[in-house]
Design a protein around this nucleic acid. Structure first.
Lengths: 225, 225
DNA sequence: TGTACATCAGTGAACGCGCGTTCACTGATGTAC
DNA sequence: TGTACATCAGTGAACGCGCGTTCACTGATGTAC
């Protein structure tokens, strides 16, 4: 039934083509879905909620997605699938371990502050998968983890220190720590001070002997409180 | 049926008193609720599911609980409210840091294996609270955390070493790490090997200088894989 | 101890309501000539 | 460029169905005498 013309298709008039408009609608729906699902959960949010949030009707949802489940999948893929969270490359490579830990922790905390929705979705989806084993991972966990693991290994080799445990396990642990602290912080902000993640990182990496030199960089942790 | 004699109330006949029978029904419902909510989530599970699992009818639920929400609250209070997870007192006080870390990790992993339901409920509830701020914490997080924090402080003082950060922050971090690893392990068991939590603990506590002596207990971590 | 009545935990059916999904329709966009 | 028809993204109403909640009822337990 659908024509589904090849790639470009010549267009003379201005304004949006049908295809472009549809893509725009789809994106509106996905954005709305992110907000609504983060606030109410996959099971708790209705497609009416999503459509209202997008300023559209439920029919628009079914015109763009086959079912509620497919909307969820598409959302997760778009929001969690890319290695956008794979920020370790952004960290200055030549700083001390303590400085790098602090930088990483800072970036993480910023991300958490600005992308609360994303974390809620991520955790919700992990729960969902814990309950429905065998489901496809739309978030590309393994790919994201392995990319970071490789980056860390390369850094360690280049800078001449040893990671405190195999890179994949380390990355898994760091993800888990971030997730756990994020969850606790979202529930009760004052339980998880801004710098806690950084201090934990400092302890974990603090054990790293810089191979040659005996520069024991203990990040001190301003432990007032 | 079961006798289960109580303490008080003069009763001549055998069998259950009305009150005892009701308490028993309530408990059946709570057990069923734990299973069903862990499997389907609070929003995804119906009271019919719970009643069926308990071998009763929905009416029995409403005879014992005012609403679905109250059933959930009662369940959380019973399952997560007591400091049953406060196991650090069970750890041999005089072992080395590395041994204690390994013990703690082992106990945690056992708990996780046997109480999968409990962790799913806990995480689900944290998500719930992240979305509905200002809700009462039926799980007594602060009390449980502070109890463990005090225990650790006392241990540190008695054994003569310093904790790597203030006890409350440390406990918060340990809870978060446990939660994060638990979640990841429930989603994908092979990502989180049995001993990963122990190795992380080892790193975190490995920095602890035994005050007087220079016994740097690095827990080695059998890092095959 | 036995009898007559009161209580109430749990039953089973019914209630609306909101949900995911379907569908006939519409009007703007695209195509053919 | 203009006209006639085709397409299809999004509308709005309708559909059953399952949900949380309510309620009249029942029969075993408890109480009074």
């Amino acid at each position: 039934v659908t024509a589904m013309m090849g790639s470009v298709s010549p267009r003379q008039k201005a304004a949006l083509s049908r295809e472009e408009k549809k893509a725009q609608t789809r994106q509106k729906l996905l954005d709305a879905a992110a907000t609504v699902f983060a606030h109410k959960g996959f099971a708790g949010a209705s497609l009416d909620d999503v459509a209202d949030e997008a300023g559209l009707t439920k029919g628009a949802v079914y015109s763009n997605f086959a079912s509620k489940e497919e909307l969820i999948s598409a959302l997760l893929e778009q929001r969690l699938g890319q290695p956008s969270l794979a920020f370790p490359k952004l960290i200055s490579p030549h700083a001390t371990q303590a400085e790098q830990a602090e930088q990483a922790a800072h970036m993480f905390m910023n991300l958490l502050a600005n992308e609360r929705e994303t974390y809620l979705l991520d955790i919700e989806f992990m729960l969902y998968r814990a309950r429905n084993p065998g489901m496809h991972d739309s978030t590309n966990y393994v790919a994201r983890r392995d990319e970071i693991a490789r980056t860390m290994e390369a850094r360690a080799a280049a800078e001449g220190f040893e990671l405190p445990m195999p890179a994949k396990d380390l990355t898994t642990a760091l993800f888990a720590i971030g997730m756990g602290l994020a969850l606790e912080r979202m529930v009760n902000e004052e339980h998880v001070p801004e710098d806690l993640f950084g201090r934990v990182l400092g302890l974990i990496f603090g054990n790293v002997q810089p191979a040659g030199k005996d520069k024991r960089s203990q990040p001190t942790g301003k432990d007032k409180r």
